[in-house]
């Protein structure tokens, strides 16, 4: 076997990125961002609310957290569903105790499967972010534009209808996108997305269908990643989240506002033995002056004119 000559051709070897989605920029050389009230750090809490269908396809890939036992996988189907019955309410209760309004990234199918869940999120004053239709519907470049658009449109129809919110934020299942996803999101009225893990600040993306912001969402301090990919303990998760906050908070003194994102999963942090670790994290962060906790949409709105 040998390689075609094309393998030594590099058509996108040029200044900046090898695509047109966004421009390169040095996070430490940007004009400082000012948050409302002079806050140093915007705390962006995003709780994932997910449904993993029993028959979710393995191709072309499974979203993280997917069922992994032979069909019918009672084990993980129900474990993930625990988050929708108990876990999410445990997190909602803690957030209410702290008086926080945050974001919940919700699979569209939750609107019909569990309307009471969605109602509790909305009544808690939280923002609903579209999290695709369900965890078996991953976005990828093998989908036709029509099929992918149908998934996005249906997700938004369900969530907008059930919440009365505009639902302008998007998080793909497994943070997976195809080549067309940003266009399709913009076309369906999405203003910002949480899929890209390359920045601690909002930045502008380019689509053929209008503006789209990339909002930061930490990848490696996500509760699920630490617990289920790194197999690290809850105290180790707490330590890393605190350490992450400390550095961003310190940088904000010199470089302007930062976003501290805290991705949570209702079926991970909503477990009885975990939720008090979440409280420890919140107490630590909220114990600092200049922390502004807000739904991602508000953080995006504050950033939009500055980036």
């Amino acid at each position: 076997m040998s390689l075609p000559e094309d393998y030594l051709h590099y058509p996108a070897r040029r200044y900046g990125m090898d695509h047109d989605r966004y421009d390169w920029s040095d996070m430490f050389a940007r004009k400082p961002i000012a948050w409302p009230g002079g806050a140093r750090v915007a705390l962006s809490i995003v709780t994932h609310v997910q449904h993993f269908p029993l028959d979710m396809p393995a191709k072309p890939f499974k979203a993280p957290g997917a069922l992994s036992m032979p069909y019918p996988d009672f084990r993980y189907f129900t474990n993930r569903d625990y988050g929708n019955r108990i876990g999410v309410f445990r997190i909602l209760r803690l957030l209410a105790e702290k008086g926080l309004q945050t974001s919940f990234a919700v699979n569209g199918c939750i609107a019909t499967r569990y309307p009471a869940l969605l109602k509790a999120v909305v009544e808690g004053g939280h923002e609903v972010v579209a999290h695709g239709l369900d965890m078996g519907k991953v976005h990828h470049s093998g989908l036709s534009v029509e099929d992918e658009n149908a998934i996005i449109a249906e997700t938004l129809r369900l969530l907008r209808g059930a919440t009365g919110q505009p639902v302008e934020g998007w998080l793909s299942p497994g943070r997976a996108q195809g080549f067309n996803t940003p266009e399709l999101l913009a076309r369906n009225g999405i203003r910002w997305n949480l899929d890209w893990a390359n920045d601690d600040l909002p930045y502008r993306m380019r689509t053929a269908d209008g503006a789209l912001l990339a909002m930061p969402l930490a990848y490696e301090t996500d509760d699920r990643v630490v617990a289920n990919e790194y197999f690290q303990s809850e105290p180790e998760w707490v330590q890393q989240v605190k350490d992450r906050f400390d550095v961003l908070y310190r940088e904000s003194a010199e470089y302007g506002g930062r976003v501290m994102s805290l991705p949570l999963h209702s079926w991970v942090s909503g477990m009885p033995y975990r939720v008090e670790y979440l409280r420890e994290v919140l107490d630590y962060i909220l114990g600092h002056d200049g922390v502004w906790t807000a739904p991602v949409g508000q953080i995006a709105a504050a950033a939009e004119s500055q980036v």
Binding site: H19, S141, W196, D200
Partner: peptide, 22 residues
């Protein structure tokens, strides 16, 4: 690991060139 573009893994690495290197 995923079909191109693997946006999550691509952007995770791109973090180094936007923020991490500094």
């Amino acid at each position: 690991g995923r079909p191109n573009p693997d946006v999550l893994q691509y952007s995770h690495r791109d973090y180094g060139n936007r923020a991490g290197w500094q």
